[in-house]
Design a protein around this nucleic acid. Structure first.
Lengths: 222, 222
DNA sequence: TGTAAAATCACCCTTTCGGGGGATGGTGGT
DNA sequence: ACCACCATCCCCCGAAAGGGTGATTTTACA
């Protein structure tokens, strides 16, 4: 974005100025990178963010006041095309998981070599997911620990908000619908007429912007 | 396990015998590996499993009758120390996610080079998580799509087994059904007649022991 | 206290579903 | 060779779902 496919603009957010100086030197020596400054203070970074533009952000996780994790979403919102690499000494499951949940594109440990860092930035730029080997292991471990069955791999609309906008009666009807009840069964279960049930369902469909049971239930369960 | 830190015993489960022959040649040429046979039939493999011992298992995902995914847990139960690498042409989110959820240690695409395969096996052996680059990206993408806060929720989930007993065609139909497609829409999407769709759906309902869309979808989505 | 939203009911009409038959061809395993 | 299963297609039929329009009564809340 900044320079087409020519240079890669990089911004770092790192409270350890010694380390960010190292990063800077590494990147400037290799060329192809444009070091567009670094922030030692994550709060200042966030306030400056709207005016920034970079291809890749390098974020430290442990910083005073604000975790680098909190910066990820902001960056992604301002610059959806930007890549975010976390750089940290920590390889706790918790940090790794949070980073990726929040949208990080990669995760490097601070013991990574200059070559690895350079390669990781390039990798991120081409849509890769650079990770230090031990991080990759963590990620797999985390996935392996998720209870099978519950992983909500649902990218699409899934407007959960819409479901919650339903009235209590409508929710009740929708849940019975999801259990496979027929209109007549629902009517008798909640003691209303068949036509009332149909009206509720029509309203549910309108609110959820769906056309039939299947879509409505997918929204509810999905 | 088999030979201390000397040799690495490998067993493959791969219906494509040509490809497993390639694997075998690659590993035997490099040395350090002991090719302990391959299975073209996953069912036979599972029955033989209790007598097997290997350091690394290479599993294909798409095989007749039984997915390689179904083998992972069995292997891990019989041989907790063994490493399991999936080898597949598929990089769908769904397969990748399922593989790691079920306990896979790595995931390679079939276009991986011999060197990459050899390196991946070594990596897995030392506790790494070898993945083809595009797979790493998928994994990160999957994590990024999890709603923050969803790392262990979701309760019920009845007979998931039943859903998995469906044929591939039936699963396909059921998924389209869950997306709210009408029978006629499904028919044109998968290019079969309306009656065929109806037949599939009747069979789905019979296998899942349900009576309508709503119940079937609820089973599918958990 | 007024009014908007929720909840209730009614009538009519068309399309979709669900289930009952039965049939053919292909594949895989015993 | 046979059987089980899969995938495909056909006919028929009644029940269920969905959608339009309009209405009345509660309920909630500004």
């Amino acid at each position: 974005m900044t320079n087409g496919s020519d240079q890669i603009t990089v911004i770092a957010v790192e409270d350890d100025t010694a380390y960010s100086a190292v990063l800077r030197r590494v990147l400037e020596q290799v060329g192809r990178f444009r070091w567009d400054g670094s922030f030692a203070n994550p709060v200042r970074f966030l306030t400056a963010l709207p005016g920034l533009h970079a291809d890749v952000f390098l974020l430290d996780i442990h910083m005073p006041r604000l975790s680098g994790l909190e910066c990820i979403r902001e960056i992604k919102q301002c610059l959806p095309e930007a890549r975010v690499l976390m750089i940290s000494v920590h390889d706790d499951d918790d940090y790794v998981l949070k980073a990726f949940l929040d949208g990080a594109d990669g995760y490097l440990l601070k013991d990574s070599s200059p070559d690895q860092i350079v390669e990781a930035i390039h990798d991120a730029r081409r849509g890769g997911a650079p990770m230090s080997p031990s991080i990759a292991r963590k990620v797999v471990g985390i996935l392996g620990r998720l209870q099978p069955g519950e992983t909500a791999p649902k990218p699409p609309s899934s407007s959960k908000a819409a479901v919650e906008a339903l009235s209590t009666r409508e929710t009740e009807v929708l849940e019975l619908l999801a259990k496979g009840r027929r209109y007549t069964e629902i009517a008798s279960e909640i003691s209303v007429s068949l036509d009332t049930v149909k009206t509720h369902i029509r309203n549910i469909y309108r609110k959820l912007e769906v056309r039939n049971k299947a879509e409505a239930i997918s929204l509810l369960l999905g």
